[in-house]
C-alpha cells in the first residue's frame, strides 16, 4: 500500500476515531514494517472495539512480525473466543504451535483451518508435516528450542550440536543435509525438546534441488546461496559437500544475520566433514 493510502487512512481515522478504519491502517503499517506505530494504532482500536475479532487478529499478526509469539497466541485465542472457527486465527495458531513444538495443538489448529479452507494446499502440507512430526518424535529428550532463546553450547562430538555456538543464542537452527535430504549434523529443536531437523530438512531440501535444475538453463554458473523470507522464519541455504547446509531463524531476526550464520556454518561443516573423513 502506498504512503498516500496510509495518509488517507490516517486522516479518515482522525476524522472518525470510532471507525473501524484502524484495521486496514494498522495492516498497511504492519506490511510497511512500521510495527510500533501499527501496534499503537491496533491497541487504540481494540480499546474502542474490544469485541471486534479483526482488531485482535491485527494485533496477533503484528505480534508475529515483532517476534512476540506469546502475545500472538493470546490475541488469536481471543479471536476464537469471539468468532468460533475463525480460519485465520486457527492458521496462525497452527503455525506458531508448530514452531513452539506444541505439535498436538498445531495439528488441531491446522486441521480446523484446513476444514474452513479445504483448497489451501499449504495448510494440507503443514498438517501433514505436523502429523509426521508427532508420529516420529514422540519420545525425544528435552533440548533447547527455536521457539525460545537457547543457551549457547560448544560443539562437541555430538553432530547435533555442531552449529549451536554459531547461533549466538538466537532463536535459530542450522543443519547439514546429505544429497538425499537426510540430516548429517545440526538440529532444529522445538520448545518441548523434539528435534524436527529430519522433517524440516526433508521439506526444504527440495528447494535446492529445484535451484540445481534451474541453474542448468540460466547460464549463471552454479548456485551458491538461496535465501527466502516467510511469515515465521528467514531461511538460507547453500551447497555443502554433496548436500546442502540450511539455516532457519525465527522472524524478526534479520536476513543479514541468517546469511552470516550460513557462511560461518559452511566453514564449520567443511572442517567437520574433513575430520569425519
Amino acid at each position: 500500500m502506498a504512503n498516500d493510502d496510509i495518509r488517507a487512512l490516517s486522516e479518515a481515522l482522525a476524522a472518525d476515531p470510532a471507525s473501524l478504519v484502524f484495521v486496514p491502517l494498522g495492516e498497511a503499517l504492519r506490511r510497511r514494517g512500521d510495527l510500533e506505530v501499527a501496534l499503537r494504532v491496533a491497541l487504540r482500536g481494540v480499546e474502542r472495539h474490544p469485541a471486534n475479532p479483526d482488531a485482535h487478529d491485527l494485533i496477533a499478526r503484528i505480534a508475529v512480525d515483532a517476534g512476540d509469539l506469546e502475545r500472538a497466541v493470546a490475541e488469536w485465542e481471543a479471536v476464537l473466543r469471539l468468532t468460533n472457527g475463525h480460519a485465520g486465527a486457527h492458521k496462525g495458531l497452527g503455525f506458531i504451535c508448530f514452531q513452539l513444538g506444541r505439535l498436538e495443538d498445531a495439528e488441531a489448529h491446522l486441521g480446523a483451518a484446513l476444514a474452513a479452507n479445504p483448497e489451501d494446499g499449504s495448510l494440507a502440507a503443514a498438517l501433514q508435516t505436523a502429523r509426521a512430526a508427532l508420529a516420529e518424535t514422540a519420545d525425544r529428550p528435552a533440548r533447547p528450542t527455536l521457539g525460545l532463546p537457547i543457551e549457547m553450547q560448544r560443539p562437541d562430538a555430538d553432530a547435533g550440536a555442531l552449529f549451536d555456538d554459531l547461533l549466538e543464542g538466537q532463536r535459530s537452527a542450522a543443519m547439514l543435509l546429505d544429497a538425499d535430504g537426510l540430516v548429517l549434523a545440526g538440529r532444529y529443536v522445538s520448545a518441548d525438546g523434539r528435534d524436527l531437523a529430519a522433517i524440516i530438512g526433508a521439506q526444504l531440501s527440495g528447494v535446492s534441488d529445484e535451484a540445481g535444475r534451474a541453474m542448468r538453463h540460466l547460464g549463471l554458473g552454479n548456485w551458491r546461496q538461496i535465501v527466502f523470507e516467510t511469515e515465521a522464519a528467514s531461511v538460507a541455504m547453500a551447497p555443502s559437500q554433496e548436500g546442502v547446509l540450511l539455516v532457519a531463524a525465527a522472524r524478526p531476526i534479520p536476513l543479514g544475520f541468517v546469511r552470516r550464520v550460513l557462511e560461518r556454518a559452511l566453514e564449520r561443516a567443511a572442517e567437520w566433514m574433513g575430520d569425519a573423513r
Binding site: 503455525f95 514452531q99 494446499g121 502440507a125 511469515e231
Partner: peptide, 12 residues
C-alpha cells in the same frame, strides 16, 4: 510449498 509444509507460513 516447502516453507508451507515446514510450518513456516507464506513466502515473501
Amino acid at each position: 510449498r516447502s516453507a508451507g509444509a515446514a510450518g513456516f507460513g507464506a513466502t515473501g
